[in-house]
Design a protein around this nucleic acid. Structure first.
Lengths: 199, 199
DNA sequence: CGGGTAAGATTGACAGTGTTCAATTTACTG
DNA sequence: CAGTAAATTGAACACTGTCAATCTTACCCG
């Protein structure tokens, strides 16, 4: 039969370390090769293949970790805030700030043309979990009565709006004089106002 | 001295043909190698180097062509429409529709982590030209008095909003039951309403 | 028509990539 | 210590972008 199986503990440890090293490499340059990663881990170029199916699966695991960190950061940021409207603003600010602070992670999560997470249900689930933070914040605002809207639709509009700002900003496509930070609050305010919010 | 120079006509012809072939290849798969392109052109793998500085410059030229086509399509679509508000709606719909019809071109234009057009002023200018279409439409709406807003800010909000919808949609990140087509009009309406537009 | 010249395209090579597989080292158990 | 299972490695293949040197083509001038 094929090669012998490996212990669950060792597997998890190696994967975690690989993901960690990969994240620090990605922070330096946007294209990381498997061999670079292996060298940075002090291991032969083919060793990762014992713990990951392929380069795609490896970087998909890195992506999943990014989603998890993103969701954690958003939830932590939201924790002390009570006002439902302010929570929506805060999730938007957190979205932008996380992207600005960790641009390489944002690229990993949302780069167009990257392999579809559909093939990796765990990665897809991690993405859904981050999206759930946005959804919850919007639902809170709607339930509070401060805005009147279909939760799913308003959440999509807010997410798209902020995501668009951040994406365009990160590929330096905003006109000079306009920064992402200047646009996030107006975007959220406009979308809320359009749904009945009176500041 | 270095290799002999090449005639301006031949240069332009080869570049145009290369861009054309590249676009058809990109329509099939999102990653095209220089050698694939050369083979598809029926030419040796290194021939493109006579006409392009590097792979980056080649694909930057492809990008510039995408911007040009995009701007042309938007302007054509806008031509018969008079009402300033409807023009804004139409530019948004055109944005989405062009992306849906030519997803590979959209990816080339807006993929995160792609080389900065700043290093290629002609490509940057082509991008600015497409952006100008959006800007003009918004300016028309503001000048008509139907909305009250800073033109640059509203244009950025609209562009970001629609761009976000399209980007998230193209990486299949919208929830089931929500499609980009369902969101573009609500997004534009909401942003206009928030700026004083009364339908 | 013949030969020289310059434009244009090609071959060969190098370093680096993802990936596979056989061979080898390490670690642990009886 | 011996033997076996686990873990790692090295060599190899088909690719990639890129460069230098070489070859082929076409044309102009005497």
């Amino acid at each position: 039969m094929g090669r012998p199986a490996l212990s669950a503990a060792g597997l998890q440890a190696f994967r975690a370390r690989a993901i960690d090293v990969a994240l620090t490499l990605f922070a330096r340059e946007p294209d990381v090769s498997l061999r670079q990663l292996a060298k940075a881990m002090g291991v032969s170029p083919t060793t990762p293949y014992r713990y990951f199916e392929s380069k795609e699966e490896l970087f998909m695991a890195v992506r999943a970790e990014c989603y998890a960190r993103f969701a954690t950061q958003l939830r932590a940021r939201l924790k002390p805030i009570e006002d439902p409207i302010e929570r929506v603003h805060e999730v938007a600010r957190g979205y932008h700030e996380h992207a600005a602070t960790h641009p390489s992670e944002f690229g990993l999560m949302f780069q167009l043309g990257q392999p579809d997470p559909g093939a990796y249900p765990w990665a897809h689930r991690a993405g859904i979990d981050a999206w759930q933070v946005v959804l919850d914040a919007v639902e809170g605002a709607v339930l509070s009565g401060a805005v009147q809207a279909d939760v799913l639709e308003l959440a999509h509009l807010l997410w798209s709006g902020v995501h668009g700002i951040v994406s365009l900003s990160m590929s330096s496509r905003l006109s000079v004089g306009k920064s992402a930070a200047d646009l996030v609050d107006p975007m959220v305010s406009a979308l809320m106002r359009a749904h009945g919010w009176c500041p």
